[in-house]
Nucleic acid binder design. Structure first.
Length: 932
RNA sequence: AGGCGCGUAGCUCAGGGGUAGAGCACUACCUUGACACGGUAGGGGUCGGUGGUUCGAAACCACUCGCGCCUACCA
């Protein structure tokens, strides 16, 4: 390792060095051996989609999880960060179909085996990209354990789960209404349907003629989907609605199709106050109507083909799309003189989460999981605290979901995925469900005319098994025994239902134990305005551009491909106002800065508004760390560091060793409580504001002119503090900390990689309340003197005479001991004079009050009295305001009587101090007067 | 329609019964021997509104306005 350190930190130079080093050192490997007695810490990584490229959401998830993992690893836990990739059924199939289409082919041209072959080829080529990018971010996953949800062992687990659930009657096949996406050509679960709020629609009214045999007349119904009338099998009214009492049991003539349909009465479906109080009933294409149809045993007439076009049941409208038929049906009704007006109507449109096609409810035979029996234990587990959800607000959402859960449609009409392990007998129709690859004989009649179900399972079915399938289930492997249940499941709140709840259910069902102890939920990364990142908006940021740097031309070309660069840039800067301050693009902030930034956001924020400018601040922090070490190296290179904190007698040394404790404890507490913002903030504050701004500055006069003894002590403490800080920071900024670990001296026995070094605790510092209190006085004195300098625009290079007066002899002793520090940091002319309170002062000085110390700065000739008077009067105003507030409080009898005694006492002390200060400021004012 | 959450400094956000905090931005001065990706000092908020509880409210409660998100959905 070269000892030279460049003046500026360059992440591009440092970061690429370390990942391979960690891998070589097996730093991230989990040990399944039963002999390993270390406590265990496990996070199953939410497997990114095989289709995807790293986006900010992945960066956030990877960072947070990696911080948790690295922290626990350093604390001596046997850690497993279980990595994976998800096969992402619909998304992946769509991607490969798009490639095929470019070649002028469809998947049907290839046939199922050849098509799947193509997907596997594609996966082999571009499937691992996200994992590579996670490495750039520093993810400390146990990569050799990487699982793909379609791996043979994962598939075996899926089949096992399916067969068991089926045998238990929890998986069943049924014909019912499901959500159908005609573009993806598959059924969807309820969760995969997104409702577009406030879509502008139209309420169309038309009349059903009453059969002549029943006396003629008409009944008016309303609909937002007129074409569904082709599937109507009844019109319903409320049984108690007087307007329609005379029509109960009468029959209607379908105006377009040659059939009669009944008028039925139904108090569940019909709200007599809404519209005309008469509802057309289309059991095959509406969820409420479907239920109504079951109640009244109505015929279910499906009018749709799988491609979304109308079928033969629609008569002459067959072959039209929904949109075309809607128009045509309206026209036809118009021609028949049956239209009864329209009105605007806001509705929510169900759209396919994946492709945004409007989803149609359709009757279909599918496989379902019965959820109620599975949901109950999952609710219970969170209620009794076996699994804790953090932030806790999400528990209500979780409860609500599970309490109202519907059965889960798990079959998908796709080719890419786990094919359903069910075989149908061509002879007797028996369904055989099996763990085997093939079933050639019917279990019932022995026929060999067996055909496997063409459909595949919902991708989330395999994901639900993730915490144990990845560990070898159904086999009782060492891994499963040791690493189930996981410690933390960390993921975005948006997949609480999709994934977390389902893992809870499956984990409890198959393992008899919760799949993880805690659920940690983070927010969505959005742009600076709070808008979701999307290709449409052109506000997507590629994390790699932040890490490696990129010109805005490059950034925008990715954010809004194909758009004129000028427009794209305008939109981008609108989404990220702070980006304008970054010049022509993102500099290479480095992975550490990106990580630290992501950790600095509160996890309870639902939206994490990414401000590129903020990353710059943390890049600067990395540079600060770099330079602090660069400075320190001059003095500490040869220090023989011990693990225990070295002896310290000097105030600054005692102080920094004491402050170290607050920093590392706050860091650990923050990480443990999933408050990475607090943890990272505490370390940032410690390093910059305490270690750099005060401690390093205080070491300078020592190294310049201190005694050998003091120099040695300071070298040892500095080396210790730096080395502890590097360890404390490592989970957040693994790269720079590893680099520095190899530069700074470290204790004998500490590992060669900081990633395996012990995370600092209170034993790495030495609590010293007296030192902290004394230091506080010294700091206040220095700041007071500096303030006077700055207010009077004394040139920073100029030296000023300083007189310190204190009533308390121990304070005077303290000041005398710290004379060199004060002299250096204030830049005084000679040594500051230290006198008792009330001692005479030189003419032409100004005064400030710093706690128990009066700070007098000789400014004779440097300053006008008027200006000083202004300054003092400003201070007087502040103090007086405080006095008024405090006095008012204390003069209120109710406060003195009812407030806690210690609060009253504290307020009294406060008031005394304020009054004393007020008196002293009077003197300061008098002094200012002397300046003329 | 229900549920959840948010509204605090110009911006992004912490905090949370005892006289307001951070980062960035801003102002002034400074290239001082780690760092200008820096230093020192400073300005800036009646904590969305109204009412209540309390000795004391930015914090707790009620209502209200504005904004998000989620779930359900009236044809």
């Amino acid at each position: 390792m070269s000892t030279e350190m460049p003046k500026a930190y360059d992440p591009k130079d440092v970061e690429p060095r370390w990942y391979a080093f960690w891998i070589e050192n097996n730093a991230f490997r989990a040990d399944p051996s039963p002999d390993d007695k270390r406590p265990v810490y496990v996070i199953p990584m939410p497997p990114p989609n095989v289709t995807g490229a790293l986006h900010m959401g992945h960066a956030l998830m990877t960072t947070i999880e990696d911080v948790l993992l690295r922290h626990k690893r350093m604390q001596g836990f046997n850690t497993l960060y279980q990595p994976g990739i998800d096969h992402a059924g619909i998304a992946t199939q769509t991607v490969v179909e798009r490639i095929l289409r470019a070649e002028g082919k469809s998947r049907h041209d290839l046939g199922r085996p050849a098509f799947l072959e193509r997907i596997w080829q594609w996966k082999a080529k571009s499937g691992g990209r996200i994992n590579d990018q996670q490495r750039v971010l520093g993810a400390s996953a146990d990569w050799p354990r990487l699982k793909f949800t379609m791996d043979p062992d994962m598939t075996r687990a899926v089949r096992e789960a399916f067969v068991r659930l089926h045998d238990e009657g929890l998986i069943y096949r049924a014909t019912r209404l499901i959500n159908w996406c005609s573009d993806c050509r598959t059924a969807l679960s309820d969760l995969e349907v997104e409702n577009e709020e406030g879509a502008q629609g139209e309420m169309f009214q038309f009349a059903y003629p009453i059969s002549q045999a029943d006396g003629g007349g008409e009944i008016v119904v309303a609909t937002t989907r007129p074409e569904t009338m082709l599937g109507d099998t009844a019109v319903a009214v409320h049984p108690d609605d007087p307007r329609y009492k005379h029509l109960h049991g009468k029959r209607l003539r379908h105006p377009i199709l040659d059939r009669e349909i009944p008028i039925i009465t139904d108090s569940i479906l019909v709200d007599p106050k809404f519209g005309t109080g008469a509802v057309k009933v289309t059991p095959a294409h509406d969820f409420n109507d479907f239920a109504t149809g079951k109640r009244h045993k109505l015929e279910e007439i499906n009018i749709l083909e799988l491609d979304g076009k109308l079928n033969a049941n629609a008569g002459k409208f067959a072959g039209m799309t929904v949109k075309e038929s809607r128009k045509a049906v309206k026209k036809e009704l118009e021609a028949l003189g049956l239209t009864r007006g329209t009105q605007k109507h806001a509705l929510s449109l169900p759209r396919c989460q994946r492709c945004e096609t409007v989803v149609e409810p359709m009757i279909s035979t599918q496989w379902f999981v019965q959820m109620k029996p599975l949901a109950e234990p999952a609710l219970q587990a969170v209620n009794d605290g076996r699994t804790v959800i953090i932030p806790a607000e999400w528990k209500k959402t979780y409860d609500h979901f599970l309490e109202n859960i519907q059965d889960w449609c798990i079959s998908r009409q796709l080719w890419w995925g786990h094919q359903i392990p069910a075989w149908y007998c061509g002879a007797c129709g028996e369904v055989t469900v099996s763990r085997d690859d093939t079933v050639d004989k019917c279990s019932k009649c022995g026929s060999d005319k067996m055909r496997q179900d063409d459909d595949v399972l919902d991708t989330w079915f395999s994901s639900a098994l993730w915490p144990f399938s990845t560990l070898g289930w159904p086999d009782q492997t060492d891994f499963l025994k040791k690493f189930y249940p996981a410690s933390d499941m960390e993921t975005g709140y948006d997949i609480l239902f999709f994934w977390v709840a389902r893992m809870m259910m499956m984990g409890l069902h198959f393992m008899g134990e919760v799949p993880f102890r805690r659920v940690l939920l983070h927010g969505l990364v959005v742009d600076e305005n709070g808008d979701k990142m999307s290709k449409v908006k052109g506000n997507v940021i590629d994390p790699l551009d932040l890490i490696y740097g990129a010109s805005f031309d490059q950034v925008v070309a990715k954010a809004l491909p194909g758009a004129p660069p000028g427009d794209a840039l305008t939109r981008f800067k609108k989404a990220y106002p702070s980006a304008s301050q970054l010049g022509t693009g993102f500099p290479a902030f480095g992975a550490d800065a990106v990580r630290f930034t992501l950790c600095s956001y509160s996890p309870q924020a639902k939206r994490i508004a990414l401000a590129p400018k903020r990353i710059e601040g943390y890049r600067n922090f990395c540079n600060k760390i770099w330079n602090a070490v660069r400075y320190s190296m001059t003095y500490i290179e040869a220090v023989a560091v011990t693990e225990a904190p070295p002896p310290a007698t000097a105030l600054a040394n005692r102080w920094i060793l004491s402050r170290l404790i607050s920093a590392v404890e706050a860091s650990t507490k923050g990480i443990d409580e999933f408050r990475l913002d607090d943890a990272s903030g505490a370390l940032y504050h410690f390093f910059w504001d305490e270690l750099c701004s005060w401690y390093l500055e205080l070491t300078k006069p020592v190294f310049l002119a201190g005694s050998e003894e003091l120099k040695n002590e300071t070298r040892a403490v500095l080396a210790h503090a730096i080395q502890v800080a590097v360890r404390a920071l490592h989970p957040f900024i693994p790269f720079i900390s590893e680099e520095l670990w190899h530069r700074v001296p470290r204790a004998v026995g500490m590992p060669d990689t900081v990633s395996l070094a012990r995370y600092p605790t209170a034993i790495d510092g030495r609590l010293d309340a007296a030192a902290e209190a004394d230091m506080q006085i010294v700091q206040n004195v220095i700041v007071a003197a500096r303030t006077i300098r700055a207010e009077h625009e004394v040139h920073p290079g100029a030296e000023i005479p300083l007189l310190l007066r204190a009533a308390d002899p121990s304070v005077r002793e303290l000041l005398a001991r710290e004379m060199v520090s004060i002299r250096t940091l204030v830049k005084t002319q000679g040594d500051p004079q230290i006198e008792p309170a009330g001692s005479p002062r030189p003419r032409g000085s100004v005064m400030s009050v710093a706690g128990p110390v009066e700070v007098l700065v000789g400014l004779s000739g440097l300053v006008e009295g008027a200006r000083e008077k202004e300054r003092v009067q400003r201070e007087i105003k502040k103090v007086e305001k405080d006095i008024v507030v405090t006095d008012k409080k204390l003069s209120s009898p109710s406060f003195v009587d009812k407030a806690p005694a210690e609060v009253v006492a504290e307020t009294r002390t406060n008031l005394e101090a304020l009054r004393r200060k007020r008196t002293q400021l009077d003197e300061a004012l008098a002094i200012a007067d002397e300046l003329g």
